[in-house]
C-alpha cells in the first residue's frame, strides 16, 4: 500500500528532521536509495523548485515527492504525514512552553541533534555534488582525472558562492540565473 508507506516515511521525516527545510534532504535521499521512487537528480530539481515557489521548503519537498510517487493523493498523504508529528509535538509542548526551551535535558539533546543534522545534510550534499559537478560516466570511460570534474560547473559554483556571499540575493534569482547559464553553456551537454 503505497499511501501508507508514504505516510509512514514522511511521518518519520517530520519527527526526526531538525534544522529547517533542507534538514529533510538526507531523509529523502535515503528514501530515494531504498525505494527508487525518485532519483537524486529528481531530488535536486525538487529543491530548486521548492526554493523558488512560495511555501515552507520542507512542505514543498514533501508535496513534490508525494506527487512524483503517487499523484495528487500521494502529495496530500506525504504532506499530512510530515505535518502530523509537528501537531503532536506542539500540542504537548504548548502546555509548558517556556519551561521547554530552558530545560537542561532538552538543551543537551539538541546540542547533539544539531551537530548530527549538519553531518546528515553534508552527506546528502555529497550526492548532489556527484550529479552537479562530477562527471562519473565520462571518467569511467576515459579514467582521466581531468574528465572527472565538469569545469564549467565548478566556475559557476564559485561565482554563485561569491555572489551570494556578497549581495545575498533571493534564491529565486540565483536559481533563475543558473538556469540561463545552463541553457547558454549547455550544461547537460545537449545542443
Amino acid at each position: 500500500m503505497i499511501y501508507l508507506r508514504l505516510f509512514y516515511e514522511f511521518f518519520k521525516i517530520g519527527f526526526f528532521a531538525v534544522g529547517g527545510g533542507l534538514a529533510t534532504l538526507p531523509f529523502l535521499e535515503k528514501l530515494s536509495a531504498s525505494t527508487g521512487w525518485f532519483t537524486v537528480a529528481d531530488l535536486t530539481d525538487m529543491i530548486a523548485i521548492s526554493e523558488s515557489t512560495p511555501g515552507p521548503i520542507g512542505i514543498n519537498m514533501a508535496t513534490y515527492t508525494g506527487f512524483k510517487t503517487a499523484g495528487v493523493l500521494g502529495s496530500i498523504v506525504a504532506t499530512l504525514g510530515e505535518v502530523l508529528p509537528c501537531v503532536i509535538m506542539v500540542l504537548i509542548i504548548a502546555r509548558f512552553l517556556r519551561r521547554f526551551s530552558d530545560n537542561p535535558i532538552v538543551q543537551a539533546v539538541f546540542y547533539g541533534l544539531r551537530a548530527a543534522s549538519v553531518g546528515l545534510i553534508a552527506a546528502a550534499g555529497l550526492s548532489v555534488l556527484q550529479i552537479s559537478i562530477l562527471n562519473l560516466p565520462l571518467f569511467e570511460q576515459t579514467h582521466r582525472l581531468f574528465d572527472l570534474i565538469q569545469w564549467r560547473s565548478v566556475i559557476l559554483a564559485a561565482a554563485l558562492f561569491f555572489i551570494i556571499k556578497k549581495w545575498k540575493p533571493h534564491p529565486v534569482i540565483t536559481i533563475a540565473a543558473s538556469a540561463v547559464v545552463g541553457v547558454i553553456f549547455r550544461f547537460a551537454g545537449l545542443a
Binding site: 530539481d45 540565483t174 545552463g182
Partner: peptide
C-alpha cells in the same frame, strides 16, 4: 540544460 545549471546552484545553496 537549464536544470543542469540549476543543480549547481542548489549545491551552493546546500
Amino acid at each position: 540544460n537549464a536544470f543542469a545549471g540549476i543543480r549547481v546552484c542548489v549545491l551552493v545553496l546546500i
